[in-house]
């Protein structure tokens, strides 16, 4: 809370009241790449493709940076771009598939309106609900990880998400195991606090 007040007070003026957000493209990868990647993977199981979409999102963000009005937070703005990218991705796939499947009676065919209704996800089903919840949880965790100091988030991610062994992380980052565990401890404590209100 204190930090928020401190960072905002120097720019406090009627003009900047509405436009408090600024773009910092040089920090995008560190801050948002895992967050966006998580979202992309949850929508497209192909990780390579998901990675490409994240990269494309950054490019598109850069291209349309001049249209950014600062009303939304950088992260919200970027995820909106990624959502478009995911939709475009599915459009592309479907237009390719459509040609091959025209003659199949049960297929998904947009033109004749023959929607495969039973394949549409039911948002009220239990499975759909828990999947959505997990996706939300994933994004919440990534958001919290992004708030950690760089080195802590790196160590935590390598250890917890990528499952790399303590020895390998130490070798790669040039730290000793007790350093690593101190960072893990700080990261985990911070994450517990960050996730506290909504998830525990």
């Amino acid at each position: 809370m204190e930090i928020a007040i401190l960072t905002k007070s120097p720019t406090f003026s009627p003009q900047t009241m509405e436009h408090t957000h600024q773009l910092e493209p040089n920090k995008w990868v560190d801050r948002y790449s895992d967050y966006l990647f998580n979202y992309a993977v949850s929508r497209i199981s192909d990780t390579e493709m998901a990675k490409d979409l994240v990269q494309e999102t950054f490019f598109a963000g850069l291209k349309s940076a001049k249209n950014y009005k600062g009303d939304a937070a950088e992260r919200t703005w970027l995820i909106a771009i990624l959502k478009r990218k995911v939709i475009d991705h599915y459009r592309k796939i479907n237009s390719k598939k459509g040609k091959a499947e025209v003659r199949m009676p049960q297929s998904f065919d947009e033109e004749s309106g023959n929607w495969a209704e039973e394949r549409v996800a039911d948002p009220y089903s239990q499975a759909g609900k828990s999947q959505l919840e997990n996706e939300e949880l994933g994004l919440a965790i990534q958001e919290c990880i992004a708030k950690l100091p760089k080195k802590q988030s790196m160590v935590f991610t390598m250890k917890t998400i990528q499952g790399i062994s303590t020895e390998d992380i130490c070798n790669e980052l040039g730290i000793n195991p007790s350093n690593l565990w101190v960072m893990i401890h700080r990261a985990r404590t911070a994450l517990m606090g960050c996730l506290n209100q909504n998830w525990f």
């Binding site: 493209p25 040089n26 995008w28 990868v29 560190d30 790449s33 895992d34 990647f37 998580n38 993977v41 990780t47 998901a50 990675k51 994240v54 990269q55 950054f58 490019f59 850069l62 997990n134 949880l137 994933g138 965790i141 990534q142 790196m154 991610t157 390598m158 917890t160 998400i161 990528q162 985990r188 994450l191 517990m192 996730l195 998830w199």
Partner: peptide, 29 residues
């Protein structure tokens, strides 16, 4: 916290993938 991390099926990019992204983004900038 461990359970939550497991449940969320987190994914992340490797450091080298991130570095690559940064380089590409810098080029565009």
């Amino acid at each position: 916290l461990s359970h939550l991390c497991q449940k969320a099926e987190l994914h992340s990019l490797t450091e080298s993938e991130k570095e690559e992204m940064k380089t590409e983004l810098e080029k565009k900038t």
